[in-house]
Amino acid sequence: MTEAITTTTAAEPLLRVQGLKTYYPIRRGLLSRTVGNVKAVDDITLELYPGETLGLVGESGCGKSTIGRSIIRLENPTDGSIWFDGEDITKHSISDLRSVRPKMQMIFQDPFSSLNPRMRVGELLAEPMRVHGIVPDGELEKRIDWLLDMVGIPRSYKQRFPHEFSGGQRQRIGIARAISLNPKLIVCDEPVSALDVSIQAQILNLLKDLQKELGLTYLFIAHGLGAVKYISNRIAVMYLGKVVEIGTKEEIFANPRHPYTQALLNAYPVPEPRKRGQQRIVLQGDVPSPANPPSGCRFHTRCPFAQAICKEIEPQLEGGEHASACHYPLAAT
């Protein structure tokens, strides 16, 4: 009996996002009427399974961060549903959310603005744990020491202020804060893109170690494929508020189907020149405005393979485990 339950829960996604839309109204004119919407996230469906890392990639402005913020409910979705840990949290009020929040945490992009400059590190870590009663007050200090050990910050730095740390150290503190509440899911919103390249790998390794040790599930948002390749099990590629391709890391890298994915892969430097693929796609022009996305396939304005149909009909995300949204998917090499 117990075995049956564990197998089914293992197959159950920890997070299921269905048809998620997050729009921002554009106001203009004398009376500030809403004249349109910026469709930051436009009809996204995703599933995250316990213990895995889903990488979410796309250029800046494609809506990837908005997805993360909508899931954590820092933004209110316009439409769609979010199921987390067997619970529909889409319509949760602020007070209902408070009980869910410890289970899903976020690591922010900018380690310089994500820590309150007026609080010492110890207090920064203690406050949320005290509020949620994670450990008895008497054990708080021990728990903080444990957290600092976990992220590799010397315990003696507890009394310091955030401005006395480097970017990488601050990000470690941000990570310690995120894991302090024993979360199941952590949304990593470009956690390394503000850091020096030499520090990035350390932080990625730390995230990987923590995942193994604490059984965490990550939604890892990034604008390039480098970090994502290292940390993810599966990858979703986004373009203008839509997922254009999703699949396992191996499939996406070996066998990209969407021209946009191919373009992103081409932009990612390959160490050995001989191994560079034949199909090089270099993106031309800028990303169109999400307030007024192109008709049909949103990528057609920049796609080297675009045909007449691409302007007319929007392709659907199809293909099961390795799905892509393209009328003319690239052939396997």
Binding site: I94, Q105, D110, L115, E127, V131, H132
Partner: peptide
Amino acid sequence: QMDYVKAGVSLGLST
């Protein structure tokens, strides 16, 4: 708009 305030929200701190 600062991330540390957003962090406070996502940490479930009261308003």
